[in-house]
Nucleic acid binder design. Structure first.
Length: 556
RNA sequence: GCCCUAGUAGCUCAGUGGAAGAGCAACAGCCUCCUAAGCUGUAGGUCACAGGUUCGAAUCCUGUCUAGGGCGCCA
């Protein structure tokens, strides 16, 4: 437990025993005391609403209850300096803030592990995200999914979960045949033949390029081959090239998957057949109209779903159920899917499938990444992956920058629609909030450089009791909130809580920086003490920025 | 038609039972001083609308309106 939590626990315990002593309620009737941090400093360091909660039980006005409680509290036990009763019955606590100094050594000792907790209890969690079809470039929506998914994984890891990042490769469906035919057409065109693109072909520039390269390398070799040989070749080639590109784009974006899981492998290993058999044994399916249906409506879905079509081929759902079964068989206790908004209607049937297989409903969590609308010059731009008219992840990295892009996507809660104005992102990149946070870090580094130049040597033994101003305490309090912020972000699957936090921490530091000097040749002891504070802030910022995949520059 | 998500400051968005917030834009100040990509202050809100539950609702419930998405033996 960190210092802030310890202090909060002490205050809570004091409140609980004061409520009992004042004979307001018996201990078993006492609701769990909530201690929150008021947004406004005039409401103290911590506040509780316990008096209002007790109003019903005690049949007394909240403010009177608050007075009773505070009269029976032993202030000396919990660093309390002053207590005020305010508003409808809030009890506000003003603390002797010197306890905050203890945060400094705890951060410095933990270093890159500061913020780590064990709320996840080492639970095995699998997060599947991006999983874009390998038929073209990753676009804006995938970029959002990648940024959110990767940040979430980092956060879960720091909160004590055992995380595996996984990408599901849809390499078995019609779209791959379509890809093969598209590559074929581009190849033939590059050779000067008269070849039409398939009706639902992929019109991206990447595939044109493949065609060109193939023509240069192989000439008419595949134009003359049998259709069967030709398609098999283009299928494999297209898939290989698309996957290479995809992996590289994601790696450059800072996203490194642990597992690349092939849909085809499910068929090859007989997993699809096996899963269907299991569902049959469990009597979760039935025959109708020549098709095999899954009784998903038994588990809350609107209607039943086809698994095997009347032409004997599988629907997309079938291998996907097999895939989820496989996930649990690999020992994951919790499976998190991060899907695009266009798949949200799919959630009830997948949840039904997981239950039909005999797993618990809450072992599957699906997070929806809402649509990203692209705006340029104030006008909405229609995007289509099929026609290749889309802003790609690569475009974003080159034009907007990796740090700004990742921060931008991480800072919004994933389940809200997002307007992305490309012109704004590019032209106003200096005003992007990411620079505010990065600038704070660069300033911290600058202070350290200045200190070194002036002959100060970092002293781990420096006396931090000299850290005692209001601004310093504000910064320290923020630093102290980091571990619980990470834990909360993990619990809520909410990476944007981290960017919010980083902005607040940077703000507290900028404010301190403008008010007071760190490096002061006139006061060696104070400088040394403040350098420890600086180091603690730097460590916290770095750890937080790492969570969302943003770099911490030493100079800007 | 049914389902999902959203509607909070001029704009982009946090907050999801407890005292209305941030960034940008606007306005007024702050660099002989560790990076002004910064700081300080001002202004800006019947939290879409109408009911309900509650001591207390932006937050929970019901209904309505608006925007986007989903409802296939496609993936």
């Amino acid at each position: 437990m960190n210092i802030v939590e310890q202090v909060k626990e002490r205050i809570k315990a004091e409140i609980a025993q004061a409520a009992e002593k004042a004979e307001i309620v018996s201990s078993e009737d006492l609701p769990s005391v909530v201690l929150e941090t008021p947004k406004d400093k005039v409401h103290g360091d911590f506040a509780t609403n316990v008096a209002m909660q007790l109003a019903g039980v005690a049949k007394k006005a909240p403010r009177l209850i608050a007075e009773d409680i505070t009269a029976h509290m032993d202030k000396s036990k919990a660093s309390i300096e002053k207590i005020e009763i305010a508003g409808p019955g809030f009890i506000n606590f003003f603390l002797d803030k010197s306890y905050l100094r203890d945060i400094i050594p705890s951060v410095l000792q933990a270093g890159s592990d500061y913020g780590r907790t064990n709320v996840g209890e080492n639970q095995k969690v699998q997060v599947e995200f991006v999983s874009a079809n390998p038929t073209g470039n990753l676009h804006l929506g995938h970029a959002r999914g990648a940024a959110v998914g990767d940040s979430l994984c980092n956060i879960l890891d720091m909160a004590g979960y055992d995380v595996t990042r996984e990408y599901y490769i849809n390499d078995a469906g019609n779209q791959i045949t379509n890809l093969a035919r598209s590559v074929e057409a581009r190849y033939l065109q590059a050779l000067g033949h008269d070849a039409d693109m398939p009706e639902d072909g992929y019109l991206g520039a990447d595939i044109q390029q493949f065609g060109k390269e193939l023509a240069e390398e192989h000439g008419n070799r595949y134009a003359d081959a049998s259709e069967e040989e030709r398609l098999a070749f283009f299928r494999e080639y297209g898939l290989k090239r698309e996957m290479e590109k995809l992996k590289q784009d994601l790696l450059d974006f800072g996203v490194d998957f642990d597992v690349w899981f092939s849909e085809t492998s499910l068929y090859e290993d007989g997993k699809v057949e096996e899963t269907l058999q299991l569902l049959e044994e469990k009597q979760e399916v039935y025959q109708d109209d020549g098709a095999v249906w899954f009784k998903s409506s038994n588990y809350g879905d609107d209607k039943d779903r086809v698994l095997v079509k009347s032409d004997n081929s599988y629907t997309y759902l079938m291998p996907d159920i097999a895939y989820h079964k496989n996930k649990f068989e690999r020992g994951f206790e919790k499976v998190i899917n991060i899907w695009g908004a266009d798949h949200h209607g799919y959630i009830p049937r997948m949840r039904a499938a997981v239950q039909a297989l005999g797993y618990q409903k809450d072992q599957l969590e699906t997070q929806i990444i809402q649509m990203v609308n692209l705006f340029e010059n104030g006008e909405k731009v229609k995007m289509s992956k099929r026609t290749g008219k889309a802003v790609t992840l690569r475009d974003l990295m080159e034009e907007v920058g990796i740090d700004a892009t990742r921060y931008f996507f991480a800072m919004r809660s994933a389940d809200t629609h997002l307007d992305f104005d490309l012109g704004l992102a590019k032209s106003q990149s200096n005003e992007n909030p990411v620079y505010y946070v990065q600038y704070a870090h660069a300033r911290l580094c600058s202070i350290c450089r200045q200190a070194e130049e002036k002959g100060f040597v970092y002293d781990p033994e420096a006396d931090i009791s000299l850290v005692a101003t209001e601004k310093e305490y504000d910064v320290l309090k923020k630093v102290g909130e980091f571990p619980e912020t990470v834990a909360l972000a993990a619990e809520k699957y909410a990476p944007h809580r981290i960017t919010n936090y980083l902005h607040e921490l940077a703000s507290a530091f900028h404010s301190f920086y403008n008010a007071e000097r760190v490096v002061d040749s006139e006061d060696e002891e104070k400088t040394k003490a403040r350098l420890k504070l600086v180091k603690a802030v730097q460590t916290t910022l770095q750890n937080g920025m790492k969570l969302i995949g943003v770099s911490a520059p030493e100079k800007m």
